[in-house]
Every structure is written in C-alpha cells, then in structure tokens.
Nucleic acid binder design. Structure first.
Length: 657
RNA sequence: GCCGACGUAGCUCAAUGGCAGAGCAACGGUUUUGUAAACCGUAGGUUGCGAGUUCGACUCUCGCCGUCGGCUCCA
C-alpha cells in the first residue's frame, strides 16, 4: 500500500504496488486529471506517468502560465517538437542541446546549411503537424552500456558527450530517452525529461530567431546553430506575450533616444562612441548635478585626470596584462630629447590616476578617509558584436570615486557607499533591486593578492550586505581581479534586470602602488581602497533610464519640462510672457506659437513626452492664468501662472517621480 | 571576433531585373483656431560604400562599413 501526501496535507492510499501522478490526479477529480501536465514528487518535477513506488509527497502540476514547473515542461517539450520538425526537414542535422530558457527555449544543432528566418514557417508547419497528432511523450531507460552503444551508433558526438557528462555527475544514473509517441516507431531523443503528457498540450508556439552559439559556450569549440522558440499553453497567452514584446520594443532607448533627440552615434566618429545631443545633455547634467550634491553631502573631493596615461601605470596596476585584448591600441611616441620610446593608453579605468593623486603627498591617518571623485571617461575596446546603443559602448563616463581609508574605517565607508547607491535607486524609482556579492573563484589563478586578504574582504562585504538588509545572492567567479565587489541589479518597470552600480573592495592596488599613510604609532601603514560607482556609467545608466521611464522622465530630468501652447496668434504675446516667467523661475520651457489648432499642439507635446502643457487663450490672458494639462492626460484646469510655477518648481526641487 | 539577418528622403515604410514612390516631418502660402493630427503647394535621393554580372541593378554576386538578434567577452 502506498500513502500519498498532497500539498494541503491530505493523504490518499493506493492498494497497487505503484501509482502514477495521473492516477492520483484522477482520484481527486476528473477536471484535475484533465489539467494535469506533470507532478512534483518529493520536490522533484516528474512526468505524469512516472510510477511512484513508495510513500511520497505529491503535488499535481497543472497547465498554468504562472506555474514555473508547468512552463518548464511546456518549453522543454516544445523544444523536442521543434527538434523533430527540424530533423524531418534537415535529416543531416545533428542535435546538440535543447533546454528551456527564460520565456522560451532553444535547440542547438549542427547543420551545414544555415537555417534562415524564411525557413521558420516550414519548421512551424511541421511542428503544428506533430502537435496535431497529439503523440504521447514516452520515457524509457537503457543501461549505460546499451545507451552508449545506441548513441555511438547514431553517430551524434554531442549526444554521446551529453550522456557522458550526465554519467560523470552521477555514475549510477539511468540513461533515459523520450520518444514522441511510441519508442521504436516515432522520433526520439536522449533526454533527462520530464515532459508534458503529449504534444497536444502545447497550445501555441513560435520559432522566433536563429543565432550562432558555441558548443558548451566555448569559443574554441564547434559553432552550432541555435534556433530559438516560444511556447504557451494557449493562444491568448502567446498574444499577450507578443503585445508585451511590442511594448518593450517601444521603450527601446535607441528608438526613444532618436525620437527625442537625446543622443546619436556616427560611424564617422566610430561605433560605440556616444554623441550626447542637447536634450540628452540636459538629462546627463541633471544626473551629474544630483550626484555632485550627494558627493558633497558625504565628504568627497572632486578631482580631474587626463584621458590617457603611460602604459607603465597600467602595468603596475595589473590591468594591462588582464585586459590587453579589450583596450584600444596604445599610442606610441618618441621623446624629442632622449629619443626614448613611450607608450600611452587611453585610460580604461580611473583608479590608477586617482592613486597617483593619493600618493602625491605624504598622508596621515588624520587625513583619512580620502574620497576622490570624478566623472571619468574611460575607453574599452569592446568586441564589435557586443556594442548596443548606450548600454554597451567603447567610451563611457563613470561616476567614479576611490576611497582610501584605514582598515578600521572600511566598514563604515562601505556602509555609506551602499547607502548612497540606495539613495540613487530610490530617487530614480528603481524600487526593486538586489545585490550580487561577487566573489573570487578559488579554483582560478586570475586573482591578484593574498588569499587571506581576499577572505577578509569577502567576509566584510557579506557582513555589510547582511547589516544593510538588501536582498542578495552570491556569485563565485564574478569578482574583479583585485577584489570582491557588490554589484547592484535593478528591475525596471517591465521586469527586466540590469546591472547598474558597483562597490568594490580592494586590498591589492594599494599593495601594488605601495600606498602608505602614517598611523598613530608614527609608522607607515597600507590603506584600503574602495572603488564605487552608483550609476556605473552615465551612458549605460541613461540608456536604462530611458527604457525605465519609456522617455517620460520625471519633471526634474525632463529635457523640456513645460510647453506653452497658444490658442491663436492673438494670444502669442501673453504666451511668450507666461513662458518667460517660467524661464525666470528656472523651468525649462518652450513656446509653441505655431498656427495649428490646439489639438495638434497637444498631440505633438504629448508625443514628445513633455510633462506639462500650458494652454493659453483669451480666458487665461484675462485672469493671468495658464490651463494646465499633463502628458498623462490629466486636466488640472486653469490656475494662476504663479501657482503653477510654485507647483512645478517644488516638484523639480524635490526630484519627485 | 564568430553565426545569421538587415541597410531606399530627417522618420516610418513601398517599389523583386525595365522611368525610385507614399505618409509624417521640413519649407512656402491660406487659415486664427479651446484640449490627441486644418487645407493647398514646394522641395527633398550617388537606394550605406566599392567592385562585378547584365542591353539595363534598389533588386543578382563578391568585398568593406554600419546596425539588429544571438554566442563569446565585460576592470
């Protein structure tokens, strides 16, 4: 007898030697049996048909889009269906690996002929046939010897490799195959599973794109074709997803940046180099002013350093050997007098320059902490395929600062920098964020410095995160070569995650540059460095802000904060006067004195995402008022222009969202 | 850097081997307007760049540049 415990604690008993989740579901109700697509058995996702041999806790997984297990089964199964369709169309293809991924799935295949977008309809048509046939996903297991023999015979090195890797993880693992239908009769694939009960449960699917991908993500390995797809239980869910994708596309900072005249990129200047246009310049200036205010509150000193530096600086810091390949080529020159050859680098980082400011004079413990801040522009030669609008560029400005402090001061300084990052996020409306504690990979030799110092630094970061109480996760191998760091990941309004600010703890560079301060004991000591950049890069941050706000920036950031719209030519003088009052109050205002009708002017202002539209005509002129309307389509009605001015200036001053 | 796609007026897009076009924007004129697009007209092009095939190339082929989707990378 088998006792099954359901999620609500209820127990059911079965007299049979084994029981399947489907039987359990049926015993609860026919509706549940119909909706069931899989099961959680003792915390593990299984097929609906997997026999349960002993007492177990079982939850039935039903076809709900919000259930990640259900969605996993759906996507994984659709990947199989797509693989079968591709094998029908391209019998010479070799399948490699086809997992579910966030909101879809892909399958990597080796195939000499490229699959192109125009081939997608054929693949989808084959898939539709397989789905219509509603064949059961049927699992069977072979002994290792049989399985390996079968795979060897099939002549697919990737599948052999997959099986070997599975065995390397668990030598006792049974090797499972899934037939889409009947084993021996229908198409089948080496697969760990689990799957939906049958192909008919796939409600809607779409082949979305194809791209190159390396086997095991290793650029020295065979390049495969990765075909991406999406799957949903119902067509309505698919449609909702497509609508959301379109919305996301409308927020694309490259598109909005162009429409709103924020920035441009010219091939004549070079790819990955951002040209900030006047309206983007306002955005950046506001962000920088905000940051300067924060810096002043926290005892930072502004410094300025040049855009290039002698290569020896970076050899000393250790950056050069690590990042040789991602730097612009060096500038070589001969000294006029000595004839010596010098080499300069466009600076890839600001820290070595700031370090020279620190070491330009003797430092006492009384001077510390020293906090040197600079909007420092750096250049990194990113691979051409990596460039993306403002978010991945070759020249960018960091809101950088380096803190030099005593070991005793480290924690307080870290706390203060983390708090500053939080202020930044809060001010800009990123309410959902978490912190990644990026640690070294003990197995790798790319990290510089004493392991004991690393342990200490990592422990300190963990402690700070715990104290501050930010949601966090640890990531081994994500540290910088000179120290562990906290990377801040924010979610924007449509749920996409971005990496923004960073706080890095560094015991290595002070060592390399032999930095010192004189302590209370009158002896030299080594300071500790903290690198931090709350925005990260002005370019990247601005790009993300554009998408976060979809161009509708809060008033304090908006390039144009208000526009006065005149009803007709007769009121242009009054409109001009109203605009002048706003300008005098420090508001960025424009005047639309054109001869279109008011509807057209409103439409245009809304399209330009201007926060406030001030309609002025005869009524307003008589009473010294403006009729206020917002881009959100709120009509605030007419008010004295002085009232509007105090209202908007307060909003700007408070940096209201 | 690698795989694939794309590149036509300022913007969005037509024209599939046979005279490069539309809408919006711009400019000129008419209109003087009350809350999401007034009307008429004008101008705008080395079809990314360069070669090749062809009687003829936006269209086919090759190279380069750039962009996009991925992969790899990311101090």
């Amino acid at each position: 007898m088998i006792t099954i415990t359901l999620p609500d604690g209820a127990q059911k008993q079965f007299e049979t030697p084994t029981v399947t989740p489907l039987q359990i579901a049926a015993s609860i109700g026919p509706r549940l049996a119909k909706d069931a697509v899989g099961a959680m058995v003792n915390g593990e996702l299984t097929d609906l048909s997997t026999p349960i041999p002993a007492d177990a806790r079982v939850g039935i997984v039903t076809a709900k889009p919000e259930d990640s297990n259900a969605v996993y089964l759906l996507r994984h199964s659709t990947a199989h269906v797509m693989a079968e369709a591709i094998m029908r169309l391209y019998p010479q293809a070799k399948l490699a690996y086809g997992p579910p991924v966030e909101d879809g799935f892909y399958y990597d295949i080796e195939l000499a002929t490229p699959i192109r977008e125009e081939d997608f309809p054929r693949i989808e048509a084959e898939m539709a046939n397989i789905v219509a046939e509603n064949r059961a996903f049927t699992r069977y297991e072979l002994s290792q010897a049989q399985a390996m023999a079968k795979l060897q015979q099939a002549g697919n090195p990737y599948k052999v490799d997959n099986a070997q890797r599975a065995l390397a993880q668990d030598p006792d693992a049974a090797i499972s195959f899934y037939a889409t239908g009947e084993p021996g009769k229908n198409w089948e694939d080496l697969c760990r599973g689990p799957h939906l009960p049958s192909t008919g449960r796939i409600g809607a699917f779409k082949v979305t794109s194809v791209a190159g991908a390396y086997w095991h993500g290793d650029a020295s390995q065979q390049q495969l074709q990765r075909v991406y797809g999406k799957a949903f239980f119902t067509k309505a869910q698919m449609d909702a997803h497509l609508t959301q994708m379109e919305e996301a596309k409308k927020r694309d900072h490259r598109l909005i940046g162009k429409q709103m005249g924020l920035f441009t990129i010219s091939p004549l200047v070079g790819s990955g180099l951002i040209l900030w246009m006047p309206k983007g310049g306002i955005l950046r200036q506001e962000l920088e002013d905000f940051m300067r205010q924060q810096l002043a509150l926290r005892g930072y000193s502004a410094v300025y350093t040049p855009h290039i530096g002698n290569i020896n600086l970076y050899k000393t810091s250790g950056h050069y050997p690590y990042y040789k390949d991602s730097q612009f080529p060096t500038i070589k020159m001969k000294e006029r007098d000595s004839g010596d050859e010098s080499e300069y680098l466009l600076k890839p980082m600001n820290c070595p320059h700031h370090i020279q400011i620190y070491s330009a004079q003797p430092r006492s413990y009384r001077d510390l902490p020293i906090r040197l801040a600079e909007f420092g522009t750096v250049y990194r030669f990113e691979q051409s395929g990596e460039l993306n609008g403002m978010t991945r560029v070759r020249g960018f400005t960091q809101d950088d600062a380096h803190l030099f402090c005593t070991p005793e001061q480290v924690e307080a300084e870290l706390r203060s920098t983390v708090e500053m990052v939080q202020v930044v996020f809060q001010t800009l409306g990123f309410s959902e964020y978490q912190c990644r504690v990026s640690l070294r990979d003990p197995a790798s030799d790319k990290y510089a410095g004493d392991p004991a110092l690393w342990d200490r630094a990592e422990a300190t970061l963990r402690k700070i995160v715990r104290e501050v109480g930010i949601a966090s996760q640890e990531a081994v191998g994500e540290a910088a070569f000179y120290g562990p760091k906290l990377d801040f990941l924010v979610k924007d309004v449509i749920g996409r995650q971005w990496q923004l600010g960073t706080v890095q703890l560094d015991y290595v560079l002070p060592e390399r540059f032999e930095l010192e301060y004189i302590g209370t004991d009158n002896h030299p000591h080594r300071p500790v460095m903290i690198h931090r950049a709350p925005f990260g890069s002005m370019e990247r941050f601005t790009g993300i802000l554009i998408e976060h706000f979809a161009g509708s920036f809060p008033t304090w950031l908006a390039p144009v904060q208000a526009r006065v719209l005149s009803i007709s030519e007769k009121f242009v003088d009054y409109a001009r006067q109203a605009a002048a009052e706003l300008t005098a109050a420090g508001v960025r205002v424009e005047l639309d004195a054109g001869d279109e009708k008011i509807g057209a002017k409103i439409r245009r202002a809304r399209e330009e995402k201007i926060p406030y539209m001030l309609v002025v005509g005869g009524k307003e002129q008589e009473t010294g008022a403006v009729a206020v309307r917002t881009r959100k389509d709120q009509d605030l009605g007419a008010m004295p222009s002085a009232e509007f001015i105090s209202r908007i200036t307060a909003e700007i001053r408070n940096r209201s969202l």
